[in-house]
Design a protein around this nucleic acid. Structure first.
Length: 479
RNA sequence: GGCCCCUUCGUCUAUCGGUUAGGACGCCUGAUUUUCAAUCAGGAAAGACGGGUUCGACUCCCGUAGGGGCUGCCA
């Protein structure tokens, strides 16, 4: 796993090597919307460049990592269609490699064993903080003393001297400089010799050949620490792009109340994965005036330059309109299947609607829906059982005069042989002509009789979808 | 406390020193109309604040305010 390293090469950008990105969530909870966006950016960037997008599960915290969380993350990514190139790496399985790396760093002087007790350590930390300095352990000095026999120790990075300038070139944030005095002697190996996050990311990113790291800007200051470690190993520093975190609609940190939900929740709410991708893409990335960008387009257009520097707020209203856009584009057969799934999940019985009717209805229903549940709502007029329950407005529309007209219209309709939209429409128009009225005079009443006030498409379409028998039956019920 | 990042219509954003500051969602008005919508035509709506630099700043610099992050034997 030890890749040969050219010491003259400092960043992957300079090498022009094939691009490798990664998404590295820790399995301590579901895959939330921010993580999904980070994964999307990494996926797009790698795929556009013909490189690789890898997945790594950062499970070095054994206390907080759970299998259900791993499953949720994997399921969420699969739903979003963000397949990794290769199986996920589980960080914990690489602990031996991390220990080996730390040991080599101790040998080369980049790290050291620290025998401070917890009490001594917190006292020194307090002291350093009061002075405005980063924590350094006295054990960094090789001549500090002889280690107490049998005492436990942690392995720490030997941070650079105070006046060293650590420079991180970030594709989003620009050049970020940190003084050496800001870098603490952070822990590489805990007293039980398990690796910490700081060590594990650096070693794994190197071993996995990661060239570009796109991640949340909560890691921006970590990038300085990590680059010190990377240089201590003599490895090339990856290209960084630290993207601002997503905020809630009040500009505050994203919380459950704001929609910091698992992506499975969005699925349950009836959003389409391609809509999620398009919405998430535009949260922090732009290209001129482009608004809704399909995944195919994004695969051709995505770049690091388009990443924004300020945090974006989650807006369910906009998300709804993006979803509406993709519902209109969605294939009817696929939509039908999704709808049946959605229905069974929310306890709605769609079995009364055969596939042919459902599929025929979709083109008329799609333009007025934002989510799958919206579509389900619009199917209610078909599901309604005779006799139809009339809401207040509907019963008002059914004056005695209107009912007389419906009686005559029913006669006309019953003569129709072909029960298709055009024929029904023709019959309706003919009837209006005969009665010497506009369709507006009879339409609301017919609609009321047919739907009881539920939303439904154009009358002729509604009748076609209901079928001749059901249509005439519903009319009979009010005559 | 220290250090770092951010700040254009309500929201997502364009602008990379010279624009009537553009687009999208939402909102308002009108048209259409057989329900709910959809659609079409208009409209209102922004450079956090204060200093500089410059012939000229949304754009560059400094400060203030607000928001966020790191400062863990969490990631």
């Amino acid at each position: 796993m030890h890749a040969p390293t050219d010491p003259t090469v400092h960043t992957h950008e300079a090498t022009g090597s094939a691009i490798v990105t990664r998404f590295a969530p820790s399995p301590t909870g579901f895959l939330h919307i921010g993580g999904a966006r980070t994964a999307l950016f990494n996926w797009l960037f790698a795929r556009k460049a013909g490189g690789k997008y890898l997945l790594r599960i950062e499970d070095t915290d054994r206390e907080r990592s759970t299998q259900p969380a791993v499953d949720a993350i994997l399921a969420g990514l699969a739903w979003l269609g963000l397949e990794a190139d290769g199986p996920p790496t589980f960080q914990f399985t690489r602990a031996a490699r991390h220990q080996e790396a730390a040991t080599s760093l101790v040998a080369s002087g980049g790290a050291y064993h620290c025998y401070l007790s917890k009490e001594e350590e917190s006292a020194l930390k307090e002291e350093a903080r009061a002075k405005g300095l980063a924590f350094r352990s006295p054990w960094r000095d090789p001549d500090y003393g002889t280690p107490p026999t049998g005492a436990s120790y942690v392995t720490r990075l030997r941070a650079p001297s105070d006046n060293t300038i650590i420079e991180v070139m970030d594709k989003v944030q620009g050049r970020v400089v940190t003084a050496g005095r800001e870098i603490d002697d952070f822990i590489l190996l805990r007293s039980d010799h398990t690796p910490t996050y700081m060590l594990a990311v650096v070693v794994d990113d190197h071993d996995m050949g990661v060239t570009h790291i796109i991640r949340g800007d909560d890691h921006l200051t970590n990038a300085a620490r990590q680059s010190v470690l990377i240089k201590a190993f003599g490895w090339p520093v990856p290209v960084y792009a630290h993207i601002p975190l997503i905020h809630g609609d009040d500009g505050k940190k994203l919380s459950k109340r704001h929609g910091a939900l698992g992506v499975d929740e969005y699925r349950r709410m009836g959003y389409l994965p391609e809509a999620m991708r398009a919405y998430l893409l535009r949260l922090g990335w732009s290209k001129g005036d482009l608004d809704i960008v399909s995944t195919d387009e994004a695969l051709a257009l995505f770049d690091l330059e388009g990443l924004g520097r300020s945090p974006a707020r989650l807006d369910f209203v906009k998300m709804g309109s993006v979803n509406a856009h993709f519902i209109r584009l969605a294939d009817d057969t696929r939509l039908m299947e999704l709808l049946r799934e959605q229905a069974s999940q929310s306890g709605i019985d769609l079995s009364a609607i055969p596939d042919v009717i459902l599929k025929a209805a979709l083109p008329y229903l799609k333009p007025r829906a934002q989510t799958l549940p919206d579509l389900l709502d619009q199917l209610q007029f078909i599901l309604a059982k005779r006799p139809i329950t009339l809401d207040e407005k509907a019963s008002k529309a059914l004056s005695s005069e209107a009912i007389e007209r419906i009686r005559r219209l029913r006669g006309e309709l019953s003569l129709l042989i072909v029960w298709q939209h055009d024929e029904i429409k023709g019959s309706l128009d003919r009837f209006a002509g005969e009665e010497n009225i506009g369709i507006g005079k009879i339409g609301p009443a017919v609609r009321a009789a047919l739907t009881g006030g539920l939303a439904a498409p154009d009358l002729a379409v509604t009748m076609q979808l209901l079928g001749k028998q059901e249509t005439l039956g519903r009319l009979d019920d009010i005559i």
